[in-house]
Computed example of a mutant assay.
Amino acid sequence: MEPISLYFSYSQSFKQPNSSRTFDGSVLPPESGTQYEVGVKAELIKDRLSATFAAYDITKENVATTDPNHTDFSIAAGEVKSRGLEFDLYGQILPGWNVIASLFHNDAFVSKDNTLPVGDSLVNAPGSGASLWTTYQIQDGDWKGLGFGGGVFYTGDREAELPNTFKIPSYVRADATIFYKRDNWRVGLNFKNLFGTRYYDSQGSYSCSHFC
């Protein structure tokens, strides 16, 4: 049986000073946080392919958030929480064939506040996401060192502002690469957004390929 390990972590954070300012010019109070995480790590193929599964719970106080009445300024959210699950797979399936995959579910929301609606989701915090990236490099013969790969990336929909009024839509993007590697040098070409998917990184802007 390949090695399996369990882990638990606990951490606290404190951020001072908080550089954001309110509409009346005052500085926000220091941000603080507490994080719990538990998980399992496993070697699926010894020394080659590993996987990690984790669950986490993060609580932060006085997080700088855009003031809904004065969007160029900030207010401090009383308390926000982020709870979720993460799965990661990484390593080498066969000689020359590498893979990195991830999957997550996240619930990030306002848990206590006197101004923002309790239960509203945090801005730019997708509830789910996934990615798969794989490459293969030829190991023998005249083409040794030549490699190619590709992958897909999914980001779920996100809230665009607090209070929640509209969402930034989800998207799927495909990328690819071709490269040549020998000894200590490597040259390659990367291709992002192969199919010209129009997507929004955050409020007020979108990204797409040159063929949009």
Rank of each mutant, 00 (worst) to 15 (best):
F104Q: 09
D88W: 04
D57F: 05
G150A: 02
A42I: 04
D47E: 10
T134S: 15
D88Y: 05
F73D: 11
Y56F: 14
N124P: 02
L94F: 15
H70Q: 13
L28T: 11
P68E: 06
F104E: 10
L103T: 01
Q35W: 01
L28H: 01
Y154S: 02
P126F: 07
V152S: 15
N164K: 04
A101P: 06
V40Y: 06
V63M: 04
L94K: 02
P30R: 07
F73A: 09
L28Q: 01
I138H: 14
L146V: 04
K46A: 13
V99M: 15
D157G: 05
E159Y: 08
Y136R: 09
K60R: 13
T115V: 12
Q35A: 15
G156S: 14
E43H: 14
G84N: 09
Q35K: 12
S50D: 10
E31L: 06
N62M: 03
G91H: 05
E161C: 02
G33D: 00
D107N: 09
L44H: 12
N98V: 09
E31Y: 10
D107S: 13
T34F: 06
K112G: 08
N164F: 02
N114H: 06
G96N: 03
E31H: 06
V110Y: 00
T165V: 07
F148T: 11
Q92G: 05
N164P: 07
A51S: 11
E86M: 04
T66N: 14
L44I: 11
Y154V: 00
S32R: 14
T165G: 02
T134Q: 11
K144F: 13
I100D: 14
N69K: 12
S82F: 01
G149C: 03
L103C: 03
D47S: 10
N164W: 04
D157Y: 15
S131F: 04
V110L: 01
A54S: 12
T155L: 14
A108T: 05
Y56R: 05
G96E: 12
N98M: 15
W143H: 12
G149F: 00
E61W: 00
G141S: 13
V38E: 10
D140T: 15
F87W: 11
T135E: 14
A77V: 06
Q137V: 10
Y154F: 15
S74Q: 08
V38W: 11
I138W: 13
P95F: 10
G141R: 10
L116I: 07
K46I: 08
N62E: 00
E61H: 03
G141H: 06
P163T: 06
T135Y: 05
V38T: 09
A108Q: 02
G127S: 09
F104W: 14
P95A: 03
F87R: 00
L49P: 10
F153R: 12
T71W: 08
T155A: 15
H105R: 13
D67E: 05
V118K: 00
L162G: 05
A160P: 11
V118D: 00
T59E: 12
V27K: 08
K60S: 05
N124Y: 01
A55Y: 12
G39F: 08
I45P: 01
Q35D: 09
D67T: 11
E86T: 12
L103W: 14
G141A: 04
E79K: 07
G129W: 12
G156V: 03
G91Y: 13
G141Q: 08
N114G: 09
F148Y: 15
V40W: 13
S128K: 12
G149D: 04
K112M: 08
V80K: 01
G33S: 06
V27M: 03
K41T: 00
V152M: 15
K112D: 13
S131T: 03
